[in-house]
Structures are given as structure tokens and as C-alpha cells.
């Protein structure tokens, strides 16, 4: 795209229109991007460099700040609480990506049929997405209550004994994933539903003639064609689940013990409870690298499945 106009600094009268090189920027254009550069520099680049700087410093309350090199990073390698929280983060993320993805796709397939009253049902279905995390946490904490919660009552109806949900180390992660799934399945549903709506009708007619059954149409046509959308949903969900903080903090504060302490919660404790800002920054840097690496992997996969980006 060429948006440059001949500027007066040329001084020459050209016989024909000149095509400036793609991406070239003349000095006269600089003033226009300075505001954007200032904002990006101030709110993104500077905090990042500052975090990196803090992570190579001893930076605690009451102690004078001093350069420590990679000491903070070395400490991470032997910090069992960090390594545990890393494992918890990954399992929490994996579960809270897979469950909404599966249920959301299923819901999208259902809402994509000519279901009576589907407009209203769809509206109700997406409501959890709009609720605020603290309100969700309050409601679910009440529902999780071993004696008073509705979940154990519902289980009792089908003959299953009471569970301790978020109050037991073994069940706390799956219980939190349940909340995450409840809240974010609608988002996946919306993305996949958009994908389904964009699929061309002809390949299905063609498949009917080719002899495909309903399941075969899904398996060989629908599913491969919505993979790009599933990957987008996976990407959004992965980043969201990795960063998840509010709901976990509001329901369990990382407990019982440290059974639900993900990197984010550990980072919070280190930086704002123990005031070890330098070490906390090192955790943040490692965490950031993890998120970037996973995102790049997903972007790569997304590009590999770019058949829908072509005009075929």
C-alpha cells in the first residue's frame, strides 16, 4: 500500500508518479508517529525494561537496591514453590483450555442448527462471560460450600457423597477449572459459531452427493475447516488461563496451603507480600517468556492451517 504523497522537500518536478519504496518513511512523516511511539514506549517498553532491570537487582523493602546479576534466576531453579506453581499453572491451563474448547464447540454445533428459540438460549448461554470475576467467585464459593452449597446437594440427588471442592488440595484445581469453564465456554462457542457461519454451503452439498454421513461431514469437512477458529480460541484461552488471577485469588487465595498457587499468585505473594521485588521481577520475566513461547507456537500452527485465508 502506498499512502505517501509527493512532498515539497523533493524540489524536483517529476515527469511521472514516483513509487516510494514500500515501508519507506520520509523525515516529514516522523511527527505523526511520535505520539504513538511515546505511548507505546511509556506503557509497554519502559515497564518491560524496568522489570528486566529489577530482575537483575536485589530489590527488597528495607534493603538498599544493589546489582546481583543472574542470582535471582539461579534461585528460581532451586525454588520448589516456584517449580510447583509452574506445574500447577500448566495443568490448570491445559484443563481450562481443553474443557471450554470441547464444550464450546459442542454448544456451537448445537446453536448452529435450527433450534427453536435459539436466539434466547444463546443470549442466556453467553451471560457468564459478562459477569465480573469477584461476583462469580462469591457465587461459586457459596455453591462449593461442603455443607450449604448447592453442588453437594445436586450430587446427593444422584447418590454421590459430599465433596470438599475448593477446600481440599486434591480437588481444588479441577473445581477452579469448573468455574473457568463455566465462564469461558461461551466465548469459545461464539468464536466457533462465527467460524461455522462462515463455512461455504457447497462442500456440504458436494459431500452429500459423495456419500458422506452426518458424522463423516463433521469429521472430514466441518472439523478441518474450523481448525483455524479452534486455534484462535485456543490461543485466547491459553493466554487467559495462564494469566488467570482474579478468580483464583478471590476464591482460594492460592489455598488450601499452596494447592492452588499458580505462578501468578506466587508472583503476587513474592512481590507484594514479601516485598522481594527483584525476585518477583525474575519470576515475571520467566512467566512472560513462557506466555510468548506458547503464543508463538499457536500462531505458527494457525498459519499452518491457513487454508481458509486463501480464497478457495
Amino acid at each position: 500500500m502506498n499512502t505517501a504523497v509527493p512532498s515539497s522537500s523533493d524540489g524536483k518536478k517529476d515527469a511521472g508518479p514516483r513509487q516510494p519504496k514500500k515501508g519507506s518513511l520520509r523525515p516529514s512523516h516522523w511527527p505523526f508517529i511520535i505520539p504513538a511511539l511515546v505511548v507505546v514506549g511509556g506503557v509497554i517498553v519502559f515497564p518491560w525494561i524496568f522489570t528486566l532491570w529489577m530482575s537483575v537487582n536485589g530489590w527488597q523493602i528495607g534493603v538498599e537496591q544493589h546489582f546481583v546479576g543472574l542470582t535471582n534466576y539461579q534461585r528460581l531453579l532451586t525454588d520448589a514453590r516456584f517449580i510447583d506453581s509452574m506445574g500447577r499453572t500448566l495443568s490448570y491451563t491445559a484443563l481450562s483450555v481443553i474443557a471450554p474448547l470441547f464444550l464450546g464447540t459442542l454448544a456451537a454445533l448445537i446453536f448452529n442448527t435450527k433450534l427453536p428459540g435459539r436466539g434466547i438460549l444463546r443470549g442466556i448461554f453467553v451471560m457468564p462471560m459478562m459477569a465480573t470475576p469477584v461476583a462469580i467467585a462469591l457465587v461459586w464459593t457459596m455453591m462449593f460450600h461442603p455443607q450449604l452449597g448447592i453442588l453437594n446437594y445436586l450430587l446427593s440427588l444422584v447418590g454421590i457423597g459430599p465433596q470438599e471442592w475448593v477446600f481440599h488440595p486434591a480437588t481444588v484445581i479441577p473445581s477452579l477449572v469448573l468455574v473457568e469453564t463455566w465462564q469461558w465456554t461461551p466465548l469459545v462457542m461464539l468464536i466457533v459459531l462465527g467460524g461455522l457461519a462462515s463455512l461455504p454451503a457447497e462442500p456440504y452439498e458436494s459431500a452429500s452427493l459423495d456419500g458422506a454421513s452426518g458424522w463423516q461431514k463433521f469429521r472430514f469437512i466441518t472439523f478441518p475447516m474450523i481448525i483455524p477458529f479452534l486455534l484462535i480460541a485456543t490461543m485466547i484461552r491459553t493466554i487467559d488461563a495462564l494469566k488467570s488471577f482474579d478468580i483464583i485469588y478471590a476464591i482460594t487465595q492460592g489455598g488450601p496451603g499452596t494447592a492452588s498457587e499458580t505462578i501468578n499468585l506466587y508472583l503476587y505473594s513474592v512481590a507484594f507480600t514479601y516485598y522481594d521485588v527483584g525476585y518477583g521481577s525474575a519470576i515475571a520475566v520467566v512467566f512472560f517468556i513462557l506466555i510468548i513461547a506458547l503464543s508463538l507456537l499457536l500462531i505458527y500452527l494457525r498459519q499452518r492451517t491457513s487454508w481458509l485465508l486463501g480464497d478457495a
Partner: peptide, 10 residues
């Protein structure tokens, strides 16, 4: 078909 109706992912 007019729009060929090929399977884009195959």
C-alpha cells in the same frame, strides 16, 4: 457446482 465446491483443506 458453479462455485466448484471443492474441499478447501484437501
Amino acid at each position: 457446482f458453479q462455485n466448484y465446491a471443492l474441499y478447501p483443506h484437501m
